Simulated assay, not measured.
Amino acid sequence: MSKKAHLESYLSSDELKTRYLSAKDLVESRRWHLLWLVSLDWSIKKAAQVMGYNYDYAKEIVKKYNSGGELGIVNRQKKGKRRAYNALLTDSQLLDLKEALKTPPEDEGLWTGPKVARWIEKKTGIEKVWNQRGWDYLKKCRYSMQIPRRKHRKGDKDEQAAFKANLPLKVQELQRENPNATIEVWSFDEHRLGLKPIIRRIWSPIGKKPIALIEHRYEWLYLYGFVHPKTGRTEWFIIPRVNTQWFNQVLQALAQATGAGKDKIILIVLDQARWHTSKQLEIPEGIVLQTLPPYSPELQPAERLWCLADEPLVNRTFDDLDELEEILAKRCCILSTMTSEISALTNYHWWPDPEQLGEDNPVCA
Results as ranks from 00 to 15, higher is better:
L7C: 06
Y10Q: 11
L16R: 13
Y20W: 15
L21P: 01
L21G: 01
L26I: 11
E28N: 08
S29V: 01
S29Y: 01
L34E: 01
D41R: 15
I44F: 01
K46G: 05
A47P: 00
A47Q: 07
Q49N: 03
V50D: 02
Y57P: 02
I61A: 05
K63W: 07
K64I: 00
K79G: 15
K81N: 07
A87S: 05
L88C: 05
T90I: 03
S92K: 14
D96R: 14
K98A: 03
L101P: 07
K102L: 01
T103Y: 13
P104E: 03
P104I: 09
D107V: 07
E108D: 11
P114K: 08
K122T: 02
K123A: 05
E127N: 08
E127T: 10
G134C: 05
W135P: 00
W135D: 02
K139I: 09
C141R: 06
C141T: 10
R142A: 14
S144I: 11
I147E: 12
R149Y: 00
H152G: 04
K154W: 07
K154L: 11
D156H: 05
Q160E: 12
A161Y: 04
A162I: 06
A165N: 13
P168V: 04
K170P: 00
Q172I: 14
E173A: 15
E177C: 09
E177A: 15
N178M: 10
N178C: 09
E184L: 11
E184F: 08
F188T: 03
P197L: 11
R201Q: 13
I202H: 02
W203Q: 14
G207W: 04
K208S: 06
A212W: 01
A212Q: 07
H216L: 08
H216Q: 13
R217T: 14
K230R: 14
T234K: 12
T234R: 10
E235R: 15
P240Q: 04
V242C: 13
T244R: 01
Q249R: 12
G259P: 06
G259M: 09
I265M: 09
I268E: 07
L270G: 08
H276L: 05
T277R: 10
S278R: 00
S278C: 02
Q280P: 00
Q290A: 11
S296H: 10
S296L: 13
L299D: 09
Q300A: 14
Q300Y: 06
E303N: 11
C307W: 03
A309R: 08
L313A: 03
D319I: 12
D319G: 13
E323A: 15
E323D: 12
L324G: 08
E326P: 01
E326I: 05
I327S: 02
I327W: 01
L328P: 05
I342N: 03
I342H: 04
S343R: 11
S343L: 10
A344Y: 08
H349A: 14
P352A: 04
Q356H: 03
G358C: 12
E359R: 15
V363H: 06
A365G: 15
